[in-house]
Simulated assay, not measured.
Amino acid sequence: MTLDVLRSPLLDGTTHGFFTRKGGASSGVFAGLNCGVGSSDQIDIVTINRARAAAELGVAPEALCSVHQVHSADVVTVTEPQTGEAPKADALVTNTPDLALVILTADCQPVLFADREAGVIGAAHAGWRGAIDGILENTVDAMVALGATCSNIRAVIGPCISQRAYEVGPEFLDDFLGADPDNVRFFGNGEGDRYLFDLPSYGLHRLREAGVGEAEWTRHCTYYDPDRFYSYRRSVHRKEADYGRLLSAIRL
Rank of each mutant, 00 (worst) to 15 (best):
Q163S: 06
H16M: 09
A179F: 01
V67D: 09
V37D: 10
S162N: 05
F197K: 07
I135P: 00
R21D: 08
A148Q: 13
A155H: 03
R164Q: 12
P110Q: 07
Q163T: 05
V59A: 14
L11D: 02
S235A: 11
R219F: 06
C108Y: 07
T20H: 14
Y223C: 03
V184R: 13
F197Q: 09
S248A: 15
W128H: 06
C35K: 10
Y223K: 05
L101P: 03
A155K: 08
G24H: 06
V5Y: 09
H68G: 03
F113L: 02
I121W: 02
S235L: 12
P226L: 14
A100R: 14
Q109E: 10
E137Y: 02
G24C: 03
P181Y: 11
V78K: 13
H68M: 12
Y166N: 10
V184G: 00
L104D: 09
G122A: 04
I135E: 04
L6E: 08
L177W: 01
G178S: 11
G211D: 10
D182G: 13
A148P: 02
P200S: 12
S40H: 04
R21F: 00
F19Y: 09
S151T: 07
V5M: 12
S235Q: 13
S40M: 02
V5R: 12
D227K: 15
L112C: 02
L177H: 03
R154Y: 06
K239N: 11
L112T: 05
G134T: 11
I45S: 07
C150S: 09
F30V: 05
F186C: 07
L99I: 06
W217A: 06
Y230F: 07
P110N: 06
V120R: 05
G213Y: 01
G158S: 00
M143F: 06
P181M: 11
L64T: 14
V184F: 03
L136T: 01
A53E: 07
D115P: 00
F172C: 02
E62R: 15
A31G: 10
V75D: 14
G119S: 07
G84P: 03
Q42V: 00
T15S: 04
M1C: 13
A91Y: 03
E191D: 10
A89W: 02
L199W: 01
I121L: 08
S231R: 11
S235P: 06
G169P: 01
T105M: 10
P170E: 14
L246S: 14
T15H: 04
R129D: 09
F19T: 05
N189M: 06
G32P: 01
S235F: 12
I43A: 13
L112R: 12
I132W: 01
